[in-house]
Amino acid sequence: MHVFSTASARRGLGALLGAIGLQGALGCNTITGVDALRFEPCAPSYSSMTVTEEIGSDGGSAFHDACPEGEVLVGLQGGVNGPILSGISGICGAVRISEASPVEITVTAGEAMPTVRGVMSSEEPESRRCPPNEMVVGFSGSTTLYDPNAPRPILWRVALVCAPLVIEGPHEAASISLGETTSTPSLGGAEDAGDTFDPVPCPENQVARAIQGRSGLLVDALGLGCAELSLACPWARSGSEE
């Protein structure tokens, strides 16, 4: 929303935008020399979370682990017990909006969530992360029957589907879309074993912000919590509009 506090400020809109360019129009700086006009910082904003299909069985207990506010899922850390994926935790990253033109979205990857679903095992945990500045938008993999006498599949291996976010269009009508997807190597058991399932994507133009599913001693089921990201770059005033 464009807000101006004086008539002279309104008349100077064209000159102002020409002087500050895209960087100033997208925010992140206080604009001086114009009465009571400033730009608020750009920040990522997310829609309500939706959930994907969960792959696996109804064993174990349900879990839902969401990334901190403003962050997205960028990877998984997992433990392998023999040939089996025994436990997982999500890895989140903070989304940043550049102040320079052209505007870019970057992701600063953090550490794995402290909560482990399943058992990380005594072996050194492995991690699978999206390429730099990409985030999780789906997953693929396979399941297996851990106990042939109990027809409840568990997660055998998982690979992440990743994509960058791309800003298109002028700043006053910018839109965000997903770029080309890539896949990480699998985490867990061998790729030539288990029952492969079709890739599970987030809804269109949404990115993952949570892992969810069911777990006990192993990972019984896995799904994603997804949301659409948009840019919040409001213009605000510090005084009363005349």
Rank of each mutant, 00 (worst) to 15 (best):
T32R: 09
T32C: 08
T32H: 10
V34P: 05
D35W: 09
D35P: 08
D35S: 10
A36I: 07
A36D: 08
L37C: 09
R38V: 07
F39M: 12
F39H: 10
P41G: 00
C42M: 05
A43M: 02
A43N: 07
P44W: 03
P44Q: 08
P44V: 01
S47I: 00
S48G: 10
M49F: 14
M49P: 07
T50I: 09
T50C: 06
T50Q: 10
V51T: 12
V51L: 10
V51E: 10
E54N: 05
E54H: 11
E54Q: 13
E54W: 02
E54R: 14
S57G: 14
S57M: 12
S57T: 04
D58Y: 13
G59H: 01
G59L: 05
S61A: 12
S61K: 13
S61Y: 11
F63E: 03
H64A: 15
H64S: 15
H64G: 10
D65I: 09
A66N: 09
A66T: 12
A66L: 10
A66W: 03
C67K: 04
C67N: 05
C67Q: 04
P68T: 02
P68Y: 03
P68A: 06
P68K: 00
E69Q: 12
G70A: 02
E71W: 07
E71V: 05
V72A: 02
V72I: 08
V72P: 01
V72T: 05
L73E: 03
L73D: 01
L73Q: 03
V74D: 00
V74I: 04
V74N: 07
G75T: 01
L76Q: 08
Q77Y: 05
Q77S: 13
Q77N: 08
G78R: 05
G78K: 07
G79S: 12
G79C: 03
V80M: 12
V80R: 13
V80P: 07
V80F: 09
N81L: 11
N81R: 14
N81Y: 13
N81M: 14
G82K: 13
G82H: 06
P83H: 07
I84F: 15
I84W: 13
L85A: 08
L85T: 02
S86T: 14
S86I: 02
G87Q: 10
I88P: 01
S89R: 03
S89V: 03
G90V: 12
I91W: 00
I91F: 02
C92A: 04
G93Q: 03
G93D: 00
G93C: 01
V95W: 04
V95Q: 03
R96M: 09
R96G: 01
I97L: 06
S98L: 06
S98V: 05
S98P: 08
E99L: 15
E99Q: 15
E99I: 15
A100V: 14
P102V: 03
V103K: 10
E104I: 15
I105E: 01
I105R: 00
I105P: 00
T106W: 10
